[in-house]
Amino acid sequence: MTIASSAQLICFTVLSAVVAIGALGVVLLPNIVYSAFLLGGVFLSVAGLYLLLNASFVAAAQVLVYVGAVNVLILFAIMLVNKKEDLSAIPGLGVRRLLSGAVCAGLFALLLRVAFTTPWATPGPEPVGEEATIRIGEHLFSDYLLPFELASVLLLMAMIGAIVLARRDVLTADIATGEPADQGLIEKSRTPLLLEKTN
């Protein structure tokens, strides 16, 4: 066994273990902040797996999108609303846990069966390596153009939805002055808002 292949094997083992254990931690840990940080670790390890598969562009995109954007936003949301309150215990927690455990075990068994019965072509197709960036670009602007554009429409819809949710006072005006409510940042000092819906 050469140095390169043994290094690859070690990296693969470590990364897979981190992905599996980290993902379990995300689900099982009671502290939601730990779950969110572990999720970042899982995303990073998946990026590492992509690197092992010679897909460096996908790995970098994974880090940028999932770790840099998704996970940071999750953390933001958690930290901005992180109230220390003890939630009241749900009745029948044991049964619920048992049931969800059973569902997960069933799903795991199904996936295992699929993984073992599928005739995987080994070794897989030849990796393109550094050419991958160009190939991805070509695909995105030829045969995958429609899904690519649809994804952007989806993101636009999500963005508009988020704006509407965040600015519920869009149709409101200040009662005292009758002027439209200020949409400024919360940190700005201003008179307290007395808002009501205009008809």
């Binding site: 460096s56 995109a61 880090v63």
Partner: peptide, 13 residues
């Protein structure tokens, strides 16, 4: 090959 993109994605960590 991903060069400068690697820097952008790493700095997002």
């Amino acid at each position: 090959g991903v060069g400068i993109f690697l820097w952008i994605s790493l700095s997002s960590i």
